[in-house]
């Protein structure tokens, strides 16, 4: 589904590259974890596979098509959803509106977007009353769940999440991870989670660790 081929990335010069010749593959129906210490470049790697940035060398293929050729904006719009550590919801909108907005931007074919969003939110414990509130009125855990639903609702096969549990308590983190597992396994999505928490990584089907500028397969 997603192939990373000979990818290298550096900020200033190649001598100080974050990594070189990275070759990884990601399949649908599976949940992947990318582990690494702070500053190792895992979020940058997520930016590359999410189409937020371009690799300095190598290519990233989505269903055997270079994402550069698809167009990064188009790639983000049609094929990939992103869950951020800081949720990145639109603050002047309600939870439902955040989700329907993402659906409209991605061109979702759902005929009743609002009802669909309400149903999805309800499935993660955001009832109708909460769903109609401005997202700024929701707790961190609730906001993260809204962000995950926003990523899910667009029917994209690839979901990338950057430290999705970084700001959450243990219980909520556990709930979120379980929710990701469910999406990956029951809805055949490819979920790639960037994390530095071992507990989150353990819940994934595959684990890559970014260490010493190289990706190592842990699981």
């Amino acid at each position: 589904m997603l192939s990373v081929k000979d990818v290298g990335y550096w900020y200033e010069n190649k001598d100080n590259s974050l990594y070189e010749n990275v070759n990884l593959s990601f399949e649908p129906g599976k949940m992947y974890a990318i582990l690494g210490s702070s500053g190792s470049g895992k979020t940058t790697f997520l930016s590359l596979i999410a189409g937020l940035d371009k690799p300095k060398e190598g290519t990233i293929l989505y269903n055997d098509k270079e994402i550069n050729k698809i167009g990064l904006t188009n790639y983000r719009k049609k094929y990939v959803s992103i869950v951020f550590q800081s949720y990145n919801l639109l603050p002047y909108m309600t939870a439902t509106q955040n989700i329907t907005t993402a659906m409209e931007i991605s061109g979702s074919i759902q005929p009743t977007k609002k009802e669909y969003a309400t149903k999805l939110l309800d499935s993660v414990g955001i009832d109708n009353e909460l769903a109609q509130k401005k997202v700024t009125k929701l707790s961190g855990g609730q906001q993260q769940r809204v962000a995950i639903i926003r990523a899910m609702c667009c029917d994209h096969d690839l979901i990338v999440a950057d430290e999705p549990t970084g700001n959450l308590d243990e219980k909520t983190s556990k709930d979120i991870v379980q929710f990701f597992e469910k999406i990956a396994h029951t809805e055949n999505k490819c979920i790639i989670i960037v994390t530095h928490e071992k507990e989150v990584a353990d819940a994934c089907d595959h684990i890559f660790e970014l260490k010493h500028h190289e990706f190592q397969v842990i699981k």
Binding site: A50, T73, K77, I82, F84, N88, L89, A102, I105, C154
Partner: peptide, 14 residues
């Protein structure tokens, strides 16, 4: 800027 970033990240055109 933040709002623009969010919109661009979810695929909205400039």
């Amino acid at each position: 800027k933040y709002e623009i970033g969010v919109l661009l990240s979810i695929g909205e055109s400039r």
